[in-house]
Structures are given as C-alpha cells and as structure tokens.
Amino acid sequence: MRGKRSWAITALLGMALIGAVIVAMGAGSVYIPPGEVARILTDPAQGGSFATIIRQIRLPRVLLAALVGSCLATAGAVFQGLFKNPMADPYVIGVSSGASLGAVVAMAFGLQLRFLGLDSVPLLAFLGAVATMLLVYNLARTGGKVPVLTLLVAGVAVGSFLSALVSLFVYFADERLHQVVFWLMGGFAGATWHYVGMALPYTVIGLAMVGLHARELNVLLLGEEQAQHLGVDVERVKKILLAAGSLLTATAVSTAGPIGFVGLIAPHMVRMIIGPDHRSLLPAVALLGAAFLVAADTIARTIISPTELPVGLITALCGGPFFIYLLKRKGLWS
C-alpha cells in the first residue's frame, strides 16, 4: 500500500489543510478578502481593525486549531495502534481527566501563576496530564513490563476516578466555577500567540517521536512476542509511544480543553483510505486532523455569527455522519 496512492492522498490532505487555512483566515464574523489578508500578513505597517482581527485573533486561532488537530489525530492513531483497539482515542488512558482536574484546581483556587505568558489554567492542565500519564504507567507496570491491557484498564480506572473528582469540584463549586463547564467543552475562543508558542514545540517533539517509530508501531500490530522476535525492544518502544501520545494529548487539552471525536475518527478515516501502514498513515492522519479541526472551528465561529458555538459540537455533528458513511462503504479496518 505504501506507494503512489498514499503519497497522492497525503499530498491531497496537505492541500486540504492549506485550503482550510486560507478559507479560515478570510471567513469569520466579518469576511476579509484573501488579498486583504495577504496584505495584512506581509505588511506590518498595515493598521486598522481588520489588521487587529487577522494578526491577534484569527491567525493564532487558526494555527492553534491546526496544531491541536494534528496532536489529537496522531495521539489517537498511536493509542489505537499501541492498544490494538479501534475504540482507543487520545483520552483513553485518562490524560484528559488529569488535565481537566488540573484546570479545575487552577480555577477553583483562583491560582494566579504565570509562566512564559501562560495562565495557571493551561499550566496546571498540562501538569495534570503528564502526572496522570506517569501514574497510569507506574500502576500498570508489573516486573519490568507494562502489559497494554493492564495499561488500558489502569487508564480507564484512573480516568474515571479523576473525572469523579472534577465532577465533585463542579458540584460543590459556587457560581464562579461555572467557567469549568465551559472549559470542559473545549474550544479555541481563547487562543492567543502564547498558546501557539506553548503548543508548537511539544507538537513538533511529539510528532517526531511518533514518526520515528512508525515501523515499530507496524511490528507491534503483529503482537508483542512477534515484535520481540523481529528485534524490537517492545517495552522501550511502548514507553516512548506512550510518552509521545500523552505529550500530544496533554498539549492539545491544556491549550484547547478536551475536544472530542477528532482523535477517534481521523485515524480510522485515513486507515480506510490508505490502509494500516503507519509510515504512510501517520503523516496523513496529522494533516487530516489539522485540516478537520481548522474547518470545524471555522464553522463554529461563522455559522451563527456573531454567536460562537463550541467546536466540539461541530466535530461530532460533521464528523459523525461522514464517519458512518465511510464505515458503511469501506468497513472498519482491522
């Protein structure tokens, strides 16, 4: 399968991403023609409210949506491959619950930390995600090994427990914690250049870690024993992939809140079209996730403008039927 066709599709997805970004930069509560957008982006002297909208609101938002989309889609592909489970998504080992708890704690206690221009909410969300990943990993470790099934179950258990803690906070919180509810819906309305700056390096690191182990992911699909025989250091690879997937998820959740669906369906969509080889799958998945989330966010902020919808609604509403259509036509890869 790794041939001309998958390259063509990857190129197509790349163009789709570029197209989505161009449309997203022009569309919005106010339409700004592409020529005007280009002028504003190339000429720093250009002023006015359009320039403010493009430079400070729209561009960081579109870029963040692209980064988060590629993070979530890639993390989903990694976890589906690692756990050999089509139901796996970026949140399967409880990382989003950990991030949510971090965010809720930051909001509940009104913490006013500042680090590299970031608020306490994304900071604590990120820390919560990483801490959860370490906890789950260590819970699942028996002897020198981390069986994936134990990992999955430990992840689900820890995730449920942390979610219950979040609910407890929300339940007992007074009015000021209503913000938690909005945070838990996810979205890019609060995107700033600081968020883009935070997400970019981790996205690059995470994608690189995953990309360098695409072959190992393929071999793991044959079963761990088989992989060991083929000379793959299974435990080490699992650790790296787990860390990379969690890092990507943590990056996405801490900057945009938990956005559903992208991480679950993007890998399946690509697999249905170009097959299960991770070497061609992963870049295509990252591009599709980015394009999909940029497009979804554009719809979220334009469809009933000037009111904005939570982007998670759009991902599920648009992604769901399309996914079902693909499922009926092509069947789930297994």
């Binding site: 206690f109 000021r176 009111t307």
Partner: peptide, 25 residues
C-alpha cells in the same frame, strides 16, 4: 451566549461592563 471577539474589535465598544462576583475569578 458565546460571542465573537472579532466582532467586539470591529464594533469598538465605548464602555465595557463586567460582573463583579464575590471571590476569585
């Protein structure tokens, strides 16, 4: 409702009011 920050920039409010709640946030 949620509202577009872009539209705020475009319509340029002369006065911004926000709720004063007790406690933080």
């Amino acid at each position: 409702p949620r509202f577009s920050s872009e539209v705020v920039v475009l319509r340029d409010p002369e006065v911004i009011l926000s709720p004063k709640t007790h406690g933080s946030g």
